[in-house]
Design a protein around this nucleic acid. Structure first.
Lengths: 126, 126
DNA sequence: TTTCTATTTAAGTATTTGCTTAAATAATTA
DNA sequence: TAATTATTTAAGCAAATACTTAAATAGAAA
């Protein structure tokens, strides 16, 4: 009873643990970047927004609010988060702002959209 | 000044909005499921754990704690979360518990691991 | 200019998250 | 049996989230 909550298994493989440590540190940046994008897409509202932007090419906060049935500020704050993380961009047309996906991140996001479309292969049961 | 914070654009396309609503409701379940998995992988610690489980086939909380440099209870709670969401499973060997990825979810997770591996194509600058 | 429309921003709040430490389980060994 | 080891669970807490409402900004139309 000297080092409580520390668990140093006799059967542990120090070589394996060391190799794993190396892999983690070598990819540290990738883990940070990727988990950031996944965290954004890991919110149901934002995943829907991303999916809709992919489908429609571009949409404004007003329409998104209408489609998703939630307040405009709520939508706007989600859009800002994604804009700040550089996964979406916008263009102005009068007082309307159209948001769209940044093509750079499509490689990461496209598989998700494919999954969503593939998951729902029974649109009308007829 | 009658319906503040509601924005009904004249230029909005009601057809488009209606189609979008349909798409969202048709895929409601997919959005919930997928965003759940993405939220799990959207945490940097958990993404590392998933990556390591993929690389090593299976690992115990003790070794993961050692590799990641964090407390065993912290690791254990992440593992529980992923076990509860059915993306990992475990087997017992004595008092050691080995966690591994559930193969069902590999289709969703594999692209992430590929991205991590591809992101780091300059391991040693020599 | 004033009013209206589209959007953002700010402030407040309830909920969730991810850790900490301490205690509880459960299998193993002495 | 008691002590050790591997792990989980519980309680507590600071920080992050995601909404709300109200106010601010800015372009368009009257």
């Amino acid at each position: 009873m000297e080092d409580l909550n520390t668990c140093i298994r006799e059967k542990a493989n120090p070589m394996q643990i060391n190799e794993c440590r190396k892999k983690v540190t070598a990819n540290e940046e990738s883990f940070t970047q990727l988990s950031g994008i996944l965290a954004l897409a890991g919110n149901e509202v934002r995943l829907k927004i991303l999916y809709l932007l992919d489908q429609e090419r571009e949409l404004c906060p007003c329409d998104l609010s209408d489609i998703l049935g939630m307040s405009i500020p709520a939508v706007s704050q989600h859009l800002r988060k994604m804009k700040d993380s550089n996964i979406i961009e916008f263009r102005k047309e009068g007082q309307t702002i159209f948001y769209s996906l940044k093509t750079e991140n499509l490689k990461v996001l496209q598989p998700f959209f494919n999954i969503i479309n593939r998951m729902n292969l029974t649109p009308n049961t007829a």
